[in-house]
């Protein structure tokens, strides 16, 4: 099993970091930061975007491009991981290293628990995604829950099927739809990621313009991506 020596350099590092932060915080006055942009957004967000959850309006309207960037970061990370994992290193002993599966098979409780959890996780994920503009939550969080929903059965039954092809399709189309919604904004309103469909009335499920659509796209993309990644990591190595 993997063990390691005590990480004294790491502790030193932490100590240095602590010193550094103390130095920083000594001069920083908490509680009275000049929240210029923050306050301005608090004032106008609900009116401009129609989202009851200001965080969602910041993430997907005011800073939609950042979110697109973050989505791409996740995608790049997953792709990079796949690239690294999918390649057998040339400089090894040559033969594909067979995975030694040392874990015991999942027991009855785990299997049944997984079966029970699956629909609940699915619904929870969908809820978190779709109510992102109303309540805390949104695409990233909900996507993570969706990924868990698909991964847990795999954990319980490694042989259970997971349709990677579908996952790829969902992932690609969801990611593309985010960009396409942005481009549609460009074509329609003249601004990239401009809100479409009108703001609606604040607090309704069908409100806040294109924010719910974007949440959905993010949730599907994150969910399928992470599920694929986890299953790839868990399952046997590709050859």
């Amino acid at each position: 099993m993997l063990t390691s020596r005590p990480r004294w350099p790491a502790l030193l590092f932490i100590l240095g970091l602590a010193l550094l932060l103390t130095a920083l915080l000594r001069d920083l006055h908490f509680g009275n930061a000049p929240m210029q942009v923050g306050q301005a957004i608090n004032g106008v967000a609900a009116h401009e975007t129609g989202a009851a959850n200001v965080v969602a309006s910041v993430l997907l309207a005011y800073r939609g491009l950042d979110t697109l960037g973050e989505l791409a970061i996740l995608f790049a990370a997953a792709t990079g991981a796949g690239l690294v994992l999918g390649i057998a290193f040339r400089n090894g002993n040559g033969e594909a290293q067979a995975k030694t599966n040392t874990e015991p098979p999942a027991g009855f409780i785990l299997r049944k628990g997984a079966d029970l959890m699956f629909p609940f996780l699915l619904i929870l994920g969908a809820y978190v995604i779709l109510h992102g503009h109303l309540t805390p939550g949104g695409g990233f969080q909900g996507g993570a829950i969706l990924a868990a929903a698909f991964f847990v059965p795999q954990l319980a039954r490694p042989s259970s099927p997971f349709n990677e092809r579908t996952a790829h399709w969902v992932e690609a189309l969801a990611g593309a739809s985010f960009v396409l919604i942005g481009i549609a904004g460009l074509a329609g309103a003249g601004w990239f990621l401009a809100p479409l469909l009108g703001t609606g009335s604040v607090g309704e499920l069908l409100s806040a313009g294109s924010i719910p659509l974007l949440q959905l796209a993010i949730g599907l993309k994150v969910g399928s991506e992470l599920a694929g990644l986890m299953i790839a990591l868990h399952g046997p190595k590709e050859t």
């Binding site: 959850n53 965080v55 969602a56 978190v128 805390p136 939550g137 949104g138 990233f140 969080q141 909900g142 993570a144 829950i145």
Partner: peptide, 8 residues
């Protein structure tokens, strides 16, 4: 919001 993200 952040709490949910951190948890998930």
């Amino acid at each position: 919001d952040v709490a949910l993200a951190e948890a998930a």
